[in-house]
Amino acid sequence: MNKVYIQSAAHISAQKPLSEEWMDNPVVYEGDSVKSIDLNYKEYLAPNVARRMGKLLKRALVCARMAMKRAKVEMPDAIITATGLGCIENTEHFLDAMTREGETLLNPTPFMQSTHNTIGSSIALDIKCHGYNSHYSQKHTSFDCALQDAFIQFQNGKIQTALLNAHDESSSVFDSILQHIDCWHFENGGFKGETAISMALGNQPTPETLCRMEDMMICYRPTMPVLQKELQKLLERNGLTIHDLDAVFIGVNGNAENDNVYYACTETLFPNLPLARYKHLFGEHFTMSGIGFYVVATCLQQGRLPEHLLLAKENPAKQVKCIVLYNHSENRDHSMILLSNKK
């Protein structure tokens, strides 16, 4: 089976944009909602390209261009995008006008820019890419579903390169609406963030390659025995045992209900393995596991786990070669992604 290599990544997030400075010098936040550190998009996008775009689309285009540039890919075979809520600012704009001002004299642009697939199709339009183009929107496993689509197509030899994107933005009204439900409340330094990341994937290692993705699995509402069995199968079909793993990255975010699922599951599934996190730096949103994937890839590329990512300080900081990214969506969808530094 063909393997998949992560060739590049470019993010705009709560951490310094387009940079891996968070590895050694992370920005630390207080408060439960953080906006991304935006670039001056005028330096990146021509006025005519950007004039109808909201911040999510501007971020998406810059991340996509940068990821392709870094990977030296001009035309990917596939563009696959994950988003939980899509261009929610535009959705909100249209919905608000329709509700408050009635159903006449509405502007077409916010509607047109509100559909989820505007993201990937704007990227395709930007580079005139006629290849495969799809979008996944499955709550907190949106990115995992998009990744699995890419992975399957690499395995089947359908594609040699892919651009994988994960995007969610904050917006004033929807943020306040989400505040009504428990899963968007965070403590202990957790916060709601925004996602914007593009990664170039390929079937051959290059000098730029960050790491290799071995395999993954997603399952819906598994019982613990099913989850154990699926993990076992995942490791076995890749010739690995639990002892080959150096760490498990989990999506703890400061919400007790969310975090307890991770702690309970990892205790059974990965006893004695160091646990690491990423949402304390980047926050929580539906597609944040895309950032988690990038964090793991960066750690594998650099062969180290910075101490600030580790959940327990006594864990040994040794050279890391193989990591599992474990993600769940409200304890319904569970996904495990296996990455290594093999080339």
């Binding site: 005519n48 109808r52 004299l105 509405l106 502007n107 077409p108 642009t109 047109m112």
Partner: peptide, 17 residues
Amino acid sequence: LGLDSIDALELIVLMEK
């Protein structure tokens, strides 16, 4: 100005509004 079909729709809204 290089406008397109979506701009035309926006101008239609502007004319009425």
